[in-house]
Design a protein around this nucleic acid. Structure first.
Lengths: 206, 206
DNA sequence: TTTTAATATAATTTG
DNA sequence: CAAATTATATTAAT
């Protein structure tokens, strides 16, 4: 098992190894046996980038994960693609959260409905090392936007208050404002570019 | 300077080609003034949620759009629903509803050649604010898949090289890899779910 | 209907 | 915190 972060996220194509993909294929329960032969050599396509450097271990700080996940990660070419595998069949149900789902499962239904299946998937993604994407409600967005209009750098106090009022983690608020500022900046850059470009083209027409 | 949201969506539909746009974007170091202090009470800020007059700004990034278009977009809350107003004699697109508009267009299609039909479609998706779907050739897919097998996170250099060799925008390459990773992940999730589910149900039968 | 290119944006990483 | 990148939920084209 690779240590965490011992990945090959580098751009080197040659860093790839077959065992990884084979494992992944095994894990996924299907084998894509297509096109093992390619009429091109990859090297010729990519011009042989041999630089293979070791990527420092990825430090993972995932406070939203609970501690009792007996999960083992597959080896993977990238930490983000690592797939958790339950080391025992019950570990998936040891979470503290999502108790409703847990109850449903424990009702021993013979098969799983689509809804349950979706919940499973959600729960699985929960273990994949990334916080599940938060889906803000329209009202939350509206309030956040209104605050943003007046202050795009709210301090901790305002963020906390927002978190209370909107029933969100303060962390989510902070991230939201960061992303929102980035978006604003992007749009500014774009409109600035447009102005420059329009100026340029209209000058050409003179 | 344009405020966020009253940017290009409501102005003329001009944009730049990808590479130039991106380069200039990088080059233009836009400096934005930070609102350092907030003199608003949270209550007053949160109270704004009742007003509900300004729809969250939509900034769309459409670098593939041509510069010499004489189209103006309606303002709208949803970029995908924006309907263009032709500045020329073409009254075909002056309908209120997208659906009706689309029907009309489709009805017209039979009178036009395949080429013209394609350009209609292209314009339609264009109006919807979405880049026309790229149809990769079999060879392009094959090469991309082969590269993906070895490195699912190609760096900019490899992507550029691929773009050159495959005669595609680098952006298309990047999006392709993003979608490909998502697909791989989806399949992993699915089989993982099946494993867990099977394990679970067979345990129930013990 | 299914697959997947495209979009928007939440989350992560780096410095 | 910003910038760059990645993941992911949707949407829509095929």
């Amino acid at each position: 098992m690779l240590a965490e972060g011992e990945s090959m996220a580098s751009t080197s194509l040659c860093a790839a190894n077959t065992s990884v993909s084979q494992n992944l294929q095994k894990a996924s329960g299907f084998v894509e046996n297509k096109a093992t032969q390619c009429s091109f050599s990859i090297e010729s396509i990519l011009g042989l980038e041999q630089k293979k450097e070791v990527i420092p271990p990825v430090k993972t700080h995932r406070p939203w994960m609970d501690t009792c996940t007996n999960l083992v990660l597959h080896e993977g070419s990238n930490p983000h693609l690592q797939i958790p595998v339950a080391s025992c069949e019950n570990s998936l149900f040891h979470t503290n959260s999502n108790t409703i789902q847990e109850e449903k499962v424990l009702k021993c239904e013979k098969y799983f409905s689509v809804t349950e299946r979706l919940s499973f998937k959600r729960e699985l993604s929960w273990y994949r090392g990334r916080r599940p994407r938060t889906a803000f409600t329209r009202n939350q967005i509206e309030v956040l936007e209104n605050v943003f209009k007046m202050n795009s750098y709210p301090g901790i106090d305002i963020r906390e208050e927002l978190a209370r009022k909107l029933d969100l983690d303060e962390d989510r608020i902070q991230i939201w404002f960061q992303n929102r500022r980035a978006k604003l900046k992007r749009s500014h850059r774009e409109s600035q570019f447009l102005m420059v470009k329009n100026n340029f083209t209209s000058n050409l027409l003179d």
